[in-house]
Design a protein around this nucleic acid. Structure first.
Length: 283
DNA sequence: CACCATGTTCCTTG
DNA sequence: CCAAGGAACATGGT
C-alpha cells in the first residue's frame, strides 16, 4: 500500500466505517507492531473506546478515540510499513494469515494485517511529531523547501525520502516527481537552481494529488487480499495508451522514456532503486 | 539458490 | 552535528 496517496485513500475509506464504532475486544497476534507500547496498556486503553475521528499525517494514520474511563481522547497511531493493510469486515469469516491486530466492533471487525510486520499500531506518537510539512498543504512552500535542500549535499532523491524534509513521499513517487520536474535524482540537494526547486515542489504535489484522484476512482477491495497493486501498476481506467499510465518511470528500466524515447535507467541510491531518464533529467 | 520489494531505525565509520 | 553505507526487521514473489 503505502505512500501518502494510498494512506490518504485508506483514511477516506475507513473514516465513515469507523466513526462511532466501539471496540469490544482487542486481539493482538503480533505484539511487535505495538512497539513501544506494552500489550497490557494497549488493550486496557482501547477496550471499550469509541472511534471519533481519523486523520492522516505523512504516511501515518491518526485514529482519535474517546475512552470510556478517562476524560481526554486518545490517539492511536498507525503506519503500514511496506506491506500493511487495514480493513473493516464482517466478524464472521477467517482472518488473513498475517493479521497483526484485530479490533472486534459490533458485528464487524477492524483488521490490521501486515505480511512483513514492518508497520506499527501504537499509542506512542513520537514518530509523527518529527515530520516535515504536508506536501499538499500551504506550509510546503518553495522558500521552505529550498532552504531545507540547501542544507544538504546528499542526492536530491535521497532527500525526498527524508520525512523531515517533506512528509509522505516514498520510493515510487520520488522517482516520479523527479522525472516530471526533469531533475536528475543524482543531483546534490544544495545544487538545485531555484527553478528546479520550483518544478520539483510542483511535481511532488501533482504526482501525489494525481495518485489520490486516480486511485480514488478505483473501488477498493480490501480484505479479499488481492487488489492493491492497482495504485502502482494498473492502468488508468479508460486510458488509451501508455502516455496515460500512472507511473512513467518507476519499474520501467530499459523501456522507452515517454518524452524522448531513450531508455529509462535504474540506479541504486541509499540501497533503494531509483528510475530516471538520463536524457530528460539534467544532472 | 539468487535477487528484489511501496519503510523506518539503528549502527558504524569518517 | 552531519554524511554515507550497511544491516536489521520478516515474508513472499519471480
Amino acid at each position: 500500500m503505502p505512500e501518502l496517496p494510498e494512506v490518504e485513500i485508506l483514511a477516506r475509506h475507513l473514516r465513515p466505517l469507523l466513526r462511532g464504532q466501539t471496540i469490544r475486544r482487542v486481539l493482538v497476534r503480533r505484539e511487535k507492531v505495538l512497539r513501544p507500547t506494552p500489550l497490557r496498556r494497549f488493550q486496557k486503553t482501547l477496550t471499550g473506546a469509541t472511534f471519533t475521528g481519523l486523520t492522516r499525517r505523512g504516511k501515518y494514520l491518526l485514529f482519535k478515540l474517546k475512552t470510556r474511563t478517562a476524560a481526554q481522547p486518545v490517539t492511536l497511531l498507525g503506519h503500514l510499513g511496506m506491506t500493511g493493510r487495514m480493513f473493516v469486515a464482517p466478524r464472521t469469516g477467517s482472518l488473513p494469515k498475517h493479521a497483526a491486530v484485530v479490533f472486534e466492533l459490533g458485528r464487524k471487525r477492524f483488521v490490521y494485517e501486515d505480511t512483513r510486520y514492518f508497520g506499527r499500531l501504537t499509542l506512542d506518537l513520537t514518530a509523527s511529531g518529527k515530520l516535515g510539512p504536508e506536501p499538499l498543504a500551504a506550509d510546503f512552500t518553495t522558500e521552505s523547501f529550498a532552504r531545507e535542500l540547501k542544507r544538504s549535499r546528499q542526492a536530491v532523491k535521497i532527500k525526498l525520502l527524508d520525512q523531515t524534509l517533506v512528509a509522505g513521499v516514498g520510493n515510487i513517487y520520488a522517482s516520479e516527481a523527479l522525472f516530471r520536474a526533469r531533475v536528475s535524482p543524482r543531483l546534490a540537494a544544495n545544487r538545485l537552481k531555484l527553478d528546479q526547486v520550483k518544478r520539483l515542489r510542483r511535481a511532488v504535489r501533482e504526482v501525489l494529488a494525481g495518485a489520490i484522484a486516480g486511485g480514488s476512482t478505483i473501488p477498493l477491495n480490501f480484505g479479499a487480499g488481492k487488489t492493491d497493486g492497482l495504485f502502482y501498476f494498473g492502468s488508468v481506467a479508460g486510458a488509451t495508451d501508455y502516455y496515460e499510465e500512472r507511473l512513467r518511470v518507476y519499474d520501467r528500466a530499459g523501456q522507452a522514456c515517454v518524452r524522448c524515447r531513450g531508455p529509462i535507467k535504474r540506479i541504486v541510491q541509499a540501497a533503494r532503486s531509483t528510475f530516471y531518464c538520463p536524457q530528460c533529467q539534467i544532472f
